[in-house]
């Protein structure tokens, strides 16, 4: 269940008088960032000690800090009539079917389905952005402990992304001198080491993409400023050439996307950035709590 997709169809739940509660081990400050990004209108509950997770028996066997992805629907008397634990995540339509079937009105054919809504995708949105970001970082920020960093690196090398994310969260908490940008840079450096250490041609393509993109933007700005000058035709010509070069580099990167594992790199970078962003929010929230309230 993607929460953004659920939000998109929330009116169908409301029409049926069905409430939605989403639970995670997140601190509230971290959840707030997501509520804002996805525009969520249903309740997000925080279960950091996993009391509810344990009561439902949905702890993650690999990473005890987390729950398995699970969806339950209970009737008004608290009795479960639908569950989906782990494996393929259900979409809203399936939950609606389960609810209608429970009420004996399945299938409901005359209901309007909400159109797809574009959701703000977290950075990086695509392979190109990910590659450019990764290429832009050439060392670990000084504010971050290199020993702790190499521990995360080896956890991820051995396997679990989730485990390494937990370790990264610990690092973002303990590196108190590192600001948001430092933590984002750490995420990028980590992704670079994990994915591109042995693929210099990917890094080279990323650098070229960055240069050509900058050139196109520069020429576009120049053209904008010279709309009525006699340099206009010459600029148009140069811009066309620059755009052609940019397309070539993009094509080369797209053709190598599988070989360079770009999709996975993009997702990894995004996950680490989200942890970094959330940690900064949590820190800010902790700082803003007066001492006598703790």
């Amino acid at each position: 269940m993607q929460l953004g997709e659920l939000q998109n169809q929330i009116a169908r739940f409301e029409r049926r008088g069905v409430s939605v509660i989403a639970l995670s081990v997140d601190e509230q400050a971290a959840s707030l960032a997501m509520i804002e990004r996805l525009g969520l209108s249903f309740d997000l509950g925080s279960d950091p000690q996993q009391a509810i997770v344990k009561a439902f028996g949905v702890q993650n066997p690999d990473t005890r800090e987390l729950a398995i992805h699970a969806v339950y629907i209970v009737a008004a008397d608290g009795e479960i009539f639908y569950r989906k634990v782990g494996r393929r995540r259900p979409v809203s339509a399936e939950l609606i079917d389960a609810i209608d079937s429970f009420r004996g009105v399945y299938p409901k054919t005359n209901e309007q389905i909400e159109p797809r809504r574009r959701i703000n995708v977290a950075f990086p949105e695509n392979n190109f952005q990910a590659l450019i970001t990764v290429v832009g970082i050439t060392e670990l920020p000084e504010t971050v402990d290199p020993i702790e960093f190499s521990r995360i690196y080896s956890i991820r090398k051995k396997g679990s992304l989730d485990d390494s994310l937990v370790a990264f969260k610990t690092l973002t908490r303990s590196s108190v001198d590192a600001g948001q940008q430092d933590l984002y840079d750490t995420a990028a450096w980590l992704t670079r080491l994990l994915f591109f250490q042995d693929i210099p041609e990917a890094l080279e393509a990323g650098r070229l993409l960055n240069r050509r993109l900058a050139r196109v933007r520069e020429l576009e700005a120049l053209l904008e400023a010279n709309q009525s000058s006699d340099r206009k035709d010459e600029l148009l010509h140069t811009l066309a050439q620059a755009r052609a070069g940019l397309s070539l580099t993009r094509a080369e990167i797209s053709n190598n996307a599988d070989a360079w594992n770009l999709r996975s790199a993009k997702t990894t970078l995004r996950s680490y950035r989200e942890v970094a962003g959330a940690s900064v929010n949590v820190r800010a929230a902790l700082v803003s709590v007066p001492e006598d309230a703790q």
Partner: peptide
């Protein structure tokens, strides 16, 4: 009425 309860990974 009925309640859908969702456990999600979250960002921490």
């Amino acid at each position: 009425g009925p309640v859908a309860i969702i456990f999600y990974r979250g960002h921490w």
